[in-house]
Amino acid sequence: MILALAFVAAASFSADAKKKTVDLIEKYPALAPYFSTPSSDAMQPDELGFIRRWLLLEPISKPNRGNTVFVDSYIRKNLDTGWNKGDFKLPKDGDKVTMEVEYQKPVDMSAGRPRMPFQEPEVEMVKAKLTWHALDSKLFNVKLYRYAVGTETGRYGIICRAVTVIDVPEDIENVRLAVGSNSASMWWIDGEEVLILSGDRRMVMDDAASKRLTLKKGRHILSGAVINGPGMSDFCVRFIDENGNPVMNYNILNK
């Protein structure tokens, strides 16, 4: 597959966008062990090639009876909704998006762990206004559970969307996007599907990889959506070469 398109629009994502005035880490100190506020400088992949700079949408409520329901068709139906295709533009930090989401009463954590009924949850549709946040991960794996709980926007039964920009100085052939995610996830480059991780996934470095890709010189939007039921949620993403070694020669931007 050759990804010939190289585009990033700098326009704001939503009419609801408002400039953020409060640093997210200061507002939610629980995020501090896992995330930092991005600098204005371009970031490079870490020493193992992992991408740590992301725009993360606040969790989309998606109650489910457990992670085993995340088969391929479920993933496509619920994650591949067209949200990052067509006239999709890179969101800015603080942009907001409004959508209808499935809502379930908060999980009962009184016993110290969630009760797992293994039945389809009873949900109602509600309107939610969710915010994009620009963050750098302090770890190679982006801790979505900590992001959700730390921002007091969710815990279990959620979909997290993640977007970043890959700025490639020259064509790079025969690379693969390699992902580990907890739980299932789906990934796109410039809106084209490149990878799906279905099932009750654990976050494993290089758990699955795309077909060989050519990253053309220029900017590319890398986006993903991770769905989780109960339990920890996180992901790690990098590009690898033909031998499984990390690809390092590109910059990572969030705008």
């Binding site: 991780l197 290089d206 758990d207 699955a208 795309s210």
Partner: peptide, 11 residues
């Protein structure tokens, strides 16, 4: 296996 879950063909 280019990844744990991904088969391919390679040298």
């Amino acid at each position: 296996s280019i990844a744990d879950s991904t088969p391919t063909l390679a040298k």
